[in-house]
């Protein structure tokens, strides 16, 4: 067991974890943050994507021990984040989710695309979603929702775009 200190959604958390525990299982099983989903546990599906030190990462491919002294954001966080707020609205309005299993990670990935200015065209958005599988929607509406949110954010804060 190893003691770790992690900042999760803004709160400091200390826990004793077995080194084999993935960040995903740490969040889900130990912190009850079950919005982070597992679809493959080998890095392909993207359902487990969270932010680690502000950058998107596969929580299935990170060990919780390796997150000692790092900060992690999950879908349960982002309170007051304007980009996620915009995405939540456009995903709802554009019917960009069906079963909802891929959705939390889609939002986190989409937020990153918008903030890195990689959501300027349909092509860019589609390429940026390559690592997030959605089995339900066929992606068309997800792409539209992200494009709309990107435009909206671009208008509000041209410098963030």
């Amino acid at each position: 067991m190893s003691m770790i200190h992690v900042r999760i959604n803004g709160s400091e958390v200390a826990d004793d974890v077995p080194p084999r525990l993935s960040l995903a299982d740490f969040l889900r099983e130990r912190r009850n943050l079950t919005g982070t989903h597992l679809g493959c546990e080998h890095g392909v599906c993207g359902a487990c994507t969270v932010l680690v030190d502000g950058e998107p990462a596969r929580s299935c491919l990170m060990l919780a021990v390796a997150c000692d002294d790092r900060s992690v954001e999950t879908i349960e966080g982002f309170a007051g984040d304007p980009v996620v707020a915009a995405l939540r609205r456009t995903f709802h309005e554009r019917h960009a989710l069906q079963c909802g299993y891929c959705t939390p990670a889609m939002l986190i990935t989409a937020r990153d695309l918008i903030l890195r200015k990689r959501a300027g065209s349909e092509r860019e958005i589609r390429d940026g979603l390559a690592g997030n599988i959605c089995r339900c929607t066929g992606y068309t509406n997800i792409v539209t929702a992200i494009a709309e949110a990107a435009q909206e954010i671009g208008k509000e804060a041209p410098n963030a775009q």
């Binding site: 999950t74 939540r88 309005e93 939390p104």
Partner: peptide, 21 residues
């Protein structure tokens, strides 16, 4: 009509079997 189901999933509050404690 926009979906009633969306809000919980958009906030990571859906409840799948593996989420039940």
């Amino acid at each position: 009509l926009l979906r009633k189901e969306d809000a919980r999933h958009l906030h990571g509050r859906g409840q799948f079997v593996a989420d039940i404690k």
